[in-house]
Structure formats: C-alpha cells, structure tokens
Write a protein that binds this DNA or RNA. Sequence first.
DNA 1: CGCGCACTTGAACCCCTTCAACGGGCGTGG
DNA 2: CCACGCCCGTTGAAGGGGTTCAAGTGCGCG
Lengths: 213, 213
Amino acid sequence: MHNIRQIPLFAKLDDASIDKLREISSVHSYNVKEILFYEGDAPIYMYILLSGTLRLYKTNFKGAQIFLHTFRPINLVAELANFESMPYPASAEFSTKGEVMRIDYKKLEENFFKNPDISISIIKSLAAKLKIMSEVITNEVVLTSEGKIAKFLFENEKLFNELKQTQIAALLNITPETLSRTLGKFKKQKIIDSNAANEINIINKDLLSELFS
Amino acid sequence: MHNIRQIPLFAKLDDASIDKLREISSVHSYNVKEILFYEGDAPIYMYILLSGTLRLYKTNFKGAQIFLHTFRPINLVAELANFESMPYPASAEFSTKGEVMRIDYKKLEENFFKNPDISISIIKSLAAKLKIMSEVITNEVVLTSEGKIAKFLFENEKLFNELKQTQIAALLNITPETLSRTLGKFKKQKIIDSNAANEINIINKDLLSELFS
DNA sequence: CGCGCACTTGAACCCCTTCAACGGGCGTGG
DNA sequence: CCACGCCCGTTGAAGGGGTTCAAGTGCGCG
C-alpha cells in the first residue's frame, strides 16, 4: 500500500488529515493503453499519478493524436480541469502499467485548500505545467520540423539512439518520412553522422543548436 | 495614485504589509507599442498590469510574430518566469497606453508567499493562464485555418464586424488572404452572408460550430 | 478627382503529409 | 541453414493546406 506521506503534496499533513484524505480517495490500477480520461470528459476526481507513465495528447479534426507530454510519477494530473471546472483539455493514456490515486475534488477543496503547504505545492505543480505548455507551444507553433528535430536531438542525444525513429516521430508529431529525410539532410551538412550500427552522433553541436532557438 | 487594495492579489493585506509592499514595488507607465519585456529576457520583477492592454506573442524562426493573448487589467503577467526562474517565454507589448506595477520578486516571495490569501490568488491566476495556454494549443495545433476562423466567428460574432479583417487575421495567426478566401467559402456554403455594408452575419450557427471540433 | 487603404483573386511556391515501393536486418519455422 | 515474413527505415512522387507575391477592385475622404 502506498504511504500517503510519500506524495509531496501531502507530506506534511498531520495524522487526522491523512485519515480524512483516505476517506475521500482511492487507488486504482491501469494496464498499458488504458485511458485515464478523455478530452472533453467532465472531471470529478483529481488524479495523482503514483506509478507508471501517462501519455497526454489531443486529437485533431481528422482523428490524429497530437502528443503533448508524458507524465511520470509522482505528479498531479490535469488539475487545471478541477480548478477551472472545465472538461479535460486533453486525453490521458497509460503507456505502461500504472496506478493513480483518485481524490474527490470537491471534498479535497473543502478540507485541504486552506493549508498553505498544500497550496504552495499546487502552485509549483501549476507552474511546472505552464512551463510544459509553453514548451509545447514553442515546439508545435514556433519551430519547423527541422527545428523540432534539431532541438530534440540536441537535448536528448542519448535517448535518440534508444528509441526507434517511428517513436521519435510520434513524440515530435511529425511523420517518420520527414524525420528520415531531415536526418539525411543533417548528415549531408555534416551536423551529424551515423556509425555502422546506424547510431547517430552529433558532430557540430553549434550548428545544430542554431536550427532551433 | 493606485490603491494597492484594488489589486485582488493584495486586497486582504493588513496596513503593515501594504507599507512593506510599497517599499518593494513601483508603478510605471508605457505608451502604445512599448515593450514590457522580450522573450528570453531574465525576469527580475513580477509585473501586474494595472491599466491598458498588453499583447503577448512569440516570434518564430523567420521573425514573424505569433499572437498568443491580450491581457487586460488587473492581471498578473508572466509570473511563470518568476516562479520557475526561467527567461520570459514570450514577449509583451502594449497595444494601448498602460501602467504596470513592478515588484521585486525575490522580496515578494520572502515576505508574502506564506500568506494563504495570496497563494490562493496565485493559484487562480496560474490556472487561468494554463487555460489560456490550453486554448492557444487548441487553436494553433489542433484546428485548421477554417476551424480557427469558424471558432472565432462563432464566439465573437459582434467583434468580428468591429475589427478589420487584417486585424482578425493577425489575432488568428493567418494571412488576410486566407481569411478572405475562407469567408468567401463560408458564404458559398450559406453558413454566413454579408450585407451592403459588408458586415458579416451568421446564418447557420450549427454548421459553423461543426467546423471546429 | 484622385489617393490610400482594405479586401479580393489568381498563380506560384513551400513545407509537410500521404501513398507506394523498396531494401536490409532479424527471428522463426521448415 | 536457408527461406520467409515482418518491421523499420529510406526514397520517390503526388497532393494539400497555407503563405507569398502581384495585380486588381471598391470605397471613403480630402
């Protein structure tokens, strides 16, 4: 069983509060590909991701998924929908097995929001999400495909060779073809090269970083 | 002179706190088109917009401005940068004359963040901004031009006839040509029509709303 | 009357996707 | 051990949505 005090948000609660919290919350397990909530659903619970990874995405007019972010534990998920009493702005799907703590939001608000430790945690969580959103906007609106690829490569050189190109393309919301062609271009420009095992190496980090920014 | 208690964030402060706040803050005036901060600047102050309207935008690789939002008073501006100690994620330009209160952030944090009234205000402000960002993502990433125009028209029918098409296009981050062509298409489909004064009227609101999600 | 500005319209172009075909590596089953 | 199938990456060609550029058009206002 999870110890509630391991959740930073609740770390400093006294015993009575923890008991109260147990009353209004429960823990649920999910399997790979199960959906925690869909974009447009009305929120009742506030979710805290306890284990596993959760993939957040929006769906566009033709049904394609636009990847936004993957959450790792321990993290509040989509608290915005709770605070603003609005439908979830995106869908969340488990990309591994995982668990969430599910809390009756109304009761949480009534009982715990006066607590300054909790409100500071919430501020931090909101600020972190705002930062994520700001990066999503940079990636999806400001940068071209070339810029997105350059940025991802620059920031995740090691990860790049651990993932398949199809997976990277999905993270960047581009097609594998575009990724392949762009990498070919980078090789021609001597920004990167690849060895026999087809692993990619950055040769000119400065040139690479000029492509986004 | 502005009464600090008119700022919701500080409405409930006691007199001593207000005095302290005056010490660490000052009010500054700006003219149309003056810049409050540029994307990438390091934040020192926290800004509260007291009067005027402030236009927030990002700049893409070819120098074009991507409009994000216009702020109206009274509102915290870009507090994210303060909380996360990161450069401003966007630029802010006055689109009218205006005033901001500028607060030394470090000192604000030291002296005022324990106050639960203030932290709840901040949570609300952050949540509101997160909602704005979420809408920006929907507009810019999920919707096509047609969808953006349909949505804007649906939600701002009156405003639509008060602004010039070039202004609307700028708000939607599309070219005036695309706007003109799309409106022409909507007229052909009998979704809208226009009178002698070239004012646009929605005929079929249902059809219009189907064009965005 | 003529100028300026907003809107319109057409054509070329650009970036990226889509569709299709191909090739290479690797595991599995015969 | 080879043959086959499959997955993944590559490459080409076409297409689509939007921008860019350029040339009208219409209208208000000095």
